[in-house]
């Protein structure tokens, strides 16, 4: 036992020696130095584009989420040192839990901000700057074999999806349609598509029949509709374009004849009422930081891009006029914030 504790003490004193000598060694080696202003940092890229660095946090609508990730990738090709985190929380969840408490710089939204949300934000000193970034077109899809229907009126859609006396069979809505049970698919609350569809079709946001297969996952809608001859579903135009072979998109008649969903008809406003604007809200105080301001400029600048918005995500790009308007609004906000 004596030996043991003796060894222990020896070990301890040896440790003392080692740590002490280590500290001396560190101090001695500090002689080999460099000037920190010469770029002791490893990120020693030059040029003005790389001079921006920082982190941008984005939350909000899952509809705008794919667009935001596209913009992030494109932006980072020019500014590799700016970090961008994107979270899909839903429009409301983003405002309530992230944007208004001041935790994020942008909040994506598939609908305009509500008064209650604006109030919550201003209570925390967060001032939202509304920027329209694209237009989304909802698409009603049926099975490829469903030869009896190519065009559907808004009234028929309302009848099918309304919670009051929802029809069980196709023939209940239109006598020309087969006497077969509906097999309905649609998004659940998370996608924001649901809110928008119920508002413009049924007439009240969130009001919908409930006996359909509701899912977060748009591929489930595509799959379900493509497998069942008497199925119908609705989803964002972006997802339809990815799967345009598997399912058939219906033309929609809002009283002015049948209009097929397409980038052109959505842009021209013909495809109504199922096209809607998509937004991102920037926090004005965040725009004071140059990397946030630059990202916002980049996004608006590219909101007219066919490649980024239409091809990669499937939304309708902004028009040049819209872009100019958003840019003016943004520059004014940036100036105010940085002023």
């Amino acid at each position: 036992m004596t030996g043991n504790s003796g060894a222990g003490r020896e070990l301890l004193s040896r440790r003392n020696f080692l740590v002490a000598s280590g500290a001396v060694g560190v101090a001695g080696l500090a002689g080999c130095t460099e000037n920190p202003s010469d770029g002791g940092d490893q990120g020693t890229t030059t040029g003005d584009s790389a001079s921006l660095s920082g982190t941008i946090n984005i939350a909000g609508s899952s509809t705008v989420f794919p667009l935001a990730t596209q913009m992030k990738s494109a932006f980072q090709r020019e500014y590799p040192d700016v970090k961008v985190n994107v979270q899909s929380t839903g429009t409301g969840g983003g405002f309530q839990n992230n944007f208004c408490p001041g935790n994020t710089d942008f909040n994506n939204a598939s609908r305009p901000i509500t008064d209650a949300e604006r109030e919550l934000c201003s209570k925390n000193g967060v001032e939202p700057v509304e920027l329209k970034v694209a237009t989304d077109a909802l698409t009603v899809v049926v099975n490829n074999e469903a030869g009896w229907v190519d065009c559907i009126t808004v009234d028929e859609l309302a009848q099918i999806w309304s919670p009051e006396n929802p029809p069980q069979r196709w023939s209940d809505v239109n006598a020309d349609w087969p006497d077969e049970t509906f097999n309905l698919f649609g998004p659940s609350q998370a996608s924001g598509t649901f809110d928008y569809f119920t508002e413009v079709i049924v007439g009240e946001e969130g009001k919908s029949r409930t006996d359909y297969k509701a899912t977060e996952n748009d591929s489930v809608i595509i799959q379900g509709v493509s497998k069942n001859e008497y199925a119908m579903g609705y989803l964002g135009f972006a997802y339809y374009t990815e799967n345009s072979d598997s399912v058939k998109a219906l033309k929609v008649d809002a009283g002015d004849g049948c209009i097929a969903p397409s980038l052109e008809t959505a842009k021209s406003g013909e495809y109504t009422p199922l096209s809607r604007p998509l937004f991102t809200y920037a926090a004005k105080s965040s725009l004071a930081e140059e990397h946030v301001a630059e990202f916002a400029r980049f996004w608006i600048e590219n909101s007219t891009s066919q490649e980024l918005v239409a091809q990669n995500v499937g939304y309708v790009p902004n028009t040049e006029d819209e872009k100019a308007e958003m840019m003016d609004r943004l520059e004014a906000a940036i100036e105010e914030a940085q002023g």
Partner: peptide
């Protein structure tokens, strides 16, 4: 400090010694 050690030297010292 106006002058600081090279990055690799710092790491060599702080890891190498322990």
């Amino acid at each position: 400090l106006p002058f600081v050690p090279q990055a690799w030297l710092v790491v060599a010292a702080t890891l190498g010694v322990p």
